[in-house]
Design a binder for these strands. Structure first.
Lengths: 356, 356
DNA sequence: GAAATTCTGCTAGACGTCTGTCATTTTTCA
DNA sequence: TGAAAAATGACAGACGTCTAGCAGAATTTC
């Protein structure tokens, strides 16, 4: 039960002064290579780990994070924002201030402006939904040079210098949809109607790729793709048309948003032939209701709660210059009518525990 | 951007000394009712929240938690232990020491002895897998009186005075199995063979209840229950017999452990008729392989990672005498061949970040 | 009214780290 | 060889809370 080693212990062990140790571990001032080695050796000998509590206290540290979330009619992004706000409240105890900024969706110029704006404020970390664009890349690189942690959320930017990506593997998501569709077909032949917002959206395209991969070689074929622009009116029209044109559709997989239109079409289905199996993404009010009413069969959800928690955790680690713990993948959840979680209630915690 | 209020601010506002404030918030010494009210009022006026970092620093606080996990051949409990150990490592940074004790499964006397033993050591919180027993209840109550936080994990003890339960709703888990079985039947008739370890185990019984509820009124019936005692040899024999006796079985739902026996039977299946659909619980090496090899269709997993994380988090909150944040239910994960997470790799974090 | 009890205020030293200043020593290079 | 530059040591004041001890004031008890 001995006390954990402190920087003073490290200094003694390394045979240098506290100041030198401090210069090494906090990377400031210049230190001779020899001294640096001595210190690092002592650190590893003693198994020193920084006492984060003390460090934060000393700096009166307040983490300042900013999350940049696309605006628009997308219910999913709204949900992400809600979760962020809730998480921000809970983190207030730990002196973490989380700001959420909404920007126009699919607008690299606006995103870049937002990032440049943040570069001028004292911020420790930024989370953003990736948008592939050279100007955004440059802004991220600039922020990182200034020591700001940058994490991509939900959608990655593989080419950029972001510190980490937090989100699901969309190829796997598409394969999952395929697996469930195959399960329901049980070896019978069929044809899946795939719907996306736009194939130019990386995540949507990945999901459809995954679907195709896992259906290949099975008896279930893939019908021509519908691009619904994530708008329910467009989706409704195109789905209606596709179903009329092809009575052999046995399943529908919607990889994008704008599902309200799809639900309307299904709601108007006549009994014969039986309606196709329907798989959509993201658990929102509309999809939850559709599931409860039996209009659809499966919702694949990317667990934004987990994504948000991981994101803030990653930002915190990086702000502390601590290594990121190995992150297990976020596995999308599969919801059916029977395992829907109860709708969440907001309860407000009190600041202090009861006195005895 | 003003600084968060401190206890000194509270004292000023309340018009009393720091010492009095301290006596109120830490519930020591005696304080006049009037002063106490003044302090509490100031706390709520200012929105004071204790700076946990400073508090821990001042006390050189080391949280000591102990998790009591049943021993035995159960692979799931082994997995829980692994996760606990990993979590313990990660929490070392925050001065949290987690000890894991294995005890004989289904042995209330041993559990009680373990709890009594712990009562004599300086421990801040205990997590245990619930076992319904009056002696255990009493031991828990005694611990709580001594200020030790007690959380039940995986299996609850509804009658006891535990502070919280972290685990899944097994009724929902059974309903989920039913929903997936119905999905694969797509309106066709069928018959499910249910397997448990023992109906006396609360979680197993709940799952079967859930299954029955959700199958009621559908075309899928429930065959006579098999009790396999969670032993793979017993399971193999009884399943083989049941399948021979009833060729109309179209699905198997194993709510307990000992699934290796079930996998063996399925592996020996002849092509015609097609094998029944198989749903089992807990993602372990054996079930993962069975899923990959196509021996089974679905694994329902109770996400022990989440359960462990929540448990330790809950213990920490209670040790700090902070209110528990509202816990969203843990929703069991549904795995099929296509969405299996990659097997986890163990990587060891380095103690310090790189110097610039 | 005196004594006992309860309540309150004051003070000071931890806890481990960060940050800054200043003086001193060692190294480097012209 | 001397001057500039680099490296090091020493030290002190924060950060917010906990803990302990002691003295003085207010209240209750007999």
């Amino acid at each position: 039960m001995k006390r954990a080693p402190t920087l003073a212990d490290v200094a003694t062990r390394a045979g240098v002064s506290y100041a030198t140790v401090d210069r090494v571990v906090n990377a400031r001032g210049s230190v001779a290579t020899r001294s640096k080695d001595l210190v690092l050796q002592a650190v590893s000998d003693l198994g020193y780990v920084r006492n984060v509590a003390a460090a934060n206290l000393a700096q009166a540290r307040t983490y300042r994070f900013c999350c940049i979330i696309p605006d628009g009619t997308n219910g999913f992004m709204q949900r992400v924002c809600d979760i962020l706000h809730r998480a921000a409240e809970a983190l207030a105890t730990d002196r973490v201030a989380v700001e959420v900024r909404r920007i126009a969706a699919f607008d690299p110029v606006g995103l870049r402006a937002c990032l440049d704006d943040l570069a001028a404020t004292p911020v420790d970390g930024i989370a953003l939904v990736g948008t592939t664009d050279a100007r955004v890349d440059a802004a991220i690189a600039a922020l990182r040079r200034r020591g700001v942690a940058v994490v991509t959320l939900i959608s990655d930017m593989p080419g950029s210098t972001r510190d980490a990506y937090v989100g699901i593997d969309n190829l796997t998501a598409g394969r999952t949809a395929a697996g469930l569709i195959l399960l329901a077909h049980r070896g019978k032949a069929g044809r899946v109607l795939p719907i996306v917002g736009a194939l130019s959206a990386r995540d949507h395209a990945d999901r459809i790729d995954g679907l195709r991969q896992s259906l290949a070689g099975s008896g279930v074929a893939v019908a021509p793709l519908i691009e619904g622009l994530d708008r329910h009116d467009v989706v409704a029209g195109k789905v209606q048309a596709a179903l009329s044109a092809d009575p052999g559709i046995t399943a529908i997989y919607s990889a994008g948003a704008g599902n309200a239109g799809l639900f309307r079409v299904i709601a108007g289905w006549t009994d014969t032939p039986p309606r196709p199996m329907v798989v959509v993404h993201e658990l929102l009010d509309a999809s939850r209701q559709a599931l409860e009413q039996g209009l659809i069969d499966i919702v694949i959800d990317q667990r934004p709660e987990d994504e948000v928690a991981r994101t803030l955790d990653a930002l915190r680690h990086m702000a502390d210059r601590r290594p990121l713990p190995p992150l297990p993948q976020i596995v999308p959840a599969i919801y059916i009518k029977e395992n829907l979680p109860v709708a969440r209630s907001d309860s407000r915690p009190v600041p202090l525990a009861e006195s005895a």
